[in-house]
């Protein structure tokens, strides 16, 4: 057997799995979204009808879809900058030359990332409890009246953002710490020799060196945040008043509560298109500012 046969032989099992269980379903989703697949079709495929773009048309006129998309965009718009800011702040602190035991701090700050979303979402639901939660107790000490975090349509999404920031900032912190270590020490020394203040050094040296990584991290975080699901599923069940109903949650409900798999697939595909367009735009923006 020639080496090239071995190449195929070695790659084939993984490629078959990825092809059958990822690529095929993605194409299947596209096909499914053009049909009226529902409980009747699930029982007997002869009940399946091709409906063209009807599902998309319906979604474009559905208040529920726009609501879910609005909520998801709100989560992304609030969550991404806050997450990246938290990652940047902690990365700077951990990688400061003056910091002792940086590995210890890094581990502590990173811990939430490895935890199970469902479990820590339950912890946060309790933490945010109106009467018995730690957060309202702490706010009370500062003279703030108790907030009905998860029961008030205005506060439920910000509360979920707070939780998501806590859960995720450590991930990007690790990437930013590595990027900070890659900044040549001579640049910092030159800035200090020129008498730059701490702040000037940060704005003139650190930040420009970090910018590509920061933007990349923001893009990846946004792509991930568009897929919001487990947090509202556990903490609010999409409520109150649908204020935390996300696009993926809508997909889940359409599929497994109402068994409208056609509509649900159209939701999934629209989400894909949105993420694709947003990511492409961001990438273009990134390239433009990277170009000399």
């Amino acid at each position: 057997m020639r080496a090239s046969h071995f190449g195929w032989l070695f790659a084939a099992p993984a490629l078959v799995i990825i092809g059958v269980f990822f690529f095929l379903p993605v194409l299947g989703a596209l096909a499914l979204s053009l049909t009226d697949f529902d409980l009747y079709a699930l029982a007997d495929l002869r009940n399946l009808r091709f409906v063209g773009l009807d599902n998309y048309w319906q979604l474009m006129h559905s208040r529920e879809f726009w609501g879910a998309l609005g909520n998801t965009c709100y989560f992304v718009a609030l969550g991404v900058p806050l997450s990246v800011l938290a990652s940047l702040l902690t990365a700077l602190l951990v990688s400061s030359r003056l910091t002792r035991w940086p590995a210890l701090f890094r581990t502590a700050l990173f811990a939430p990332v490895v935890t199970t979303v469902v479990a820590v979402a339950l912890v946060w639901r309790y933490l945010l409890h109106t009467r018995y939660g730690l957060l309202n107790w702490a706010l009370g000490a500062l003279g703030v009246h108790p907030l009905d975090w998860l029961g008030d349509p205005h506060w439920a999404m910000p509360a979920i953002v707070l939780f998501a920031v806590w859960k995720n900032f450590g991930y990007n912190m690790i990437i930013l710490i590595a990027a900070l270590q890659a900044v040549p020490e001579e640049l910092h020394e030159a800035a200090r020799l020129d008498g730059a203040s701490f702040w000037q050094e940060f704005v003139r040296v650190t930040l420009p060196a970090l910018r590509p990584t920061l933007l990349l991290v923001a893009i990846l975080t946004a792509a991930g945040y568009f897929q919001l699901f487990a947090e509202p599923f556990v903490m609010t069940q999409g409520g109150p008043l649908q204020s935390t109903m996300s696009v993926v949650y809508l997909m889940y409900d359409q599929a497994f509560k109402w068994w409208n798999l056609g509509t649900a697939s159209a939701v999934a595909f629209l989400l894909f298109l949105i993420v694709l367009v947003v990511t492409a735009l961001e990438m273009r923006f990134l390239r433009r500012i990277e170009a000399p």
């Binding site: 080496a3 090239s4 993605v26 997909m251």
Partner: peptide, 28 residues
Amino acid sequence: LRFRGREALLRTLLAALVIPGQVAMLPL
């Protein structure tokens, strides 16, 4: 290992990283 179609496959796999997993979930 060199095999036919390697580079094209690599490019396809890399491009597919942007597809959110939820898209595949229902047909799966």
